[in-house]
Amino acid sequence: MSVLEVRDLTIKFGGLTAIDGLNLRVDEWEIVGLMGPNGAGKTTAFNCITGFYKPTHGTVYYRDREVTKLPPHRKAALGIGRTFQNVGMVKSETALENLLTAQHTRAGYGSLQAIAGVSTVRQREKELTAHAEAILDLLGLADIRDRRIGALPYGTLKLLELGCALATDPDVLLLDEPSSGMGPEESDQLGERLLNLRQELGVTMLLIEHHVPLVTAVCDYVYVLNFGKLLAEGDPDHVRNHPEVVAAYLGGEAPDALAQTETPEDEPPADEIAPADAPVQRKSAARAPRKATGATKKAPAKKTPAKRAAARKEAS
């Protein structure tokens, strides 16, 4: 069963066809990359999947359930988490408050109870705060707990935003250029983090990313979009050597990315990105051949979909 599937997705803005017949699939525990030059329609695809845009045509399935027309907050509640290309957080709030806000659907009390101030609310608030702090610790952001986010550097914001997306308790996470604003070292770290997250929390991911080493390091499968159309798909090595992809990027504006694609000796082999003493976190270990049955895939340690569903029920 696929976690996320997009069939024949088309969206037009006036005369512009931003996405034209896109088909895309994300399976359980996969990290799938979505690449393409500027303006290719990647962010638009995210917006269609998460319900912010209404596709002109086509369908979106989440775990075999058609969700094309569900509004964004319902999809968030279902477990489709997302980040925004230019950082989507509540600007006037602190880091901690943002993480609390992101736990909206798992607050576990109703708005009337909140206003009456019954004791469940106070109890749950403590638990939500503890969870938010755990996420801050997980991302190494404990220092900025009480900082208003307006003044934080961009790379930190992107990381915190990832934390917020995690706080929504996602089953599948859509990340729009998570490494933007990060240096090469930070972005390597991010790669490890993403693999860890999958391992620890069992999150499936769809990732818009220009940074080729990161894509190579974490993605099991990559789709490349150009002018709204699917240009290529396959595993990262296949895709980055694909002549049409190379041509599309040459015509586009991503010479950096291309340079790294063309000179693999500049870039550490994927396996070195994960620490050697944590072999299970490596891509090769967690990754299974595409289109294999779920059984052959190494299951993440903690949270299985069944457990997730149970947890979700408990919370509501």
Binding site: T50, G51, F52, P71, P72, H73, A76, A77, G81, R82, F84, G88, M89, V90, K91, S92, E93, E97, L100, T101, A102, Q103, H104, T105, A107, Y109, S111, A114, I115, A116, G117, V121, E125, C164, A165, T168
Partner: peptide, 28 residues
């Protein structure tokens, strides 16, 4: 009570940015 619960956080989130609020699961 509003300000110290998900109600106020939801309201402030939608005030700052409705898209972000929706992505956080707030029924705007």
């Amino acid at each position: 009570r509003v300000r110290k619960s998900k109600v106020g956080r939801g309201l402030v989130a939608l005030r700052d940015n409705e898209l972000v609020a929706a992505a956080f699961g707030v029924d705007v």
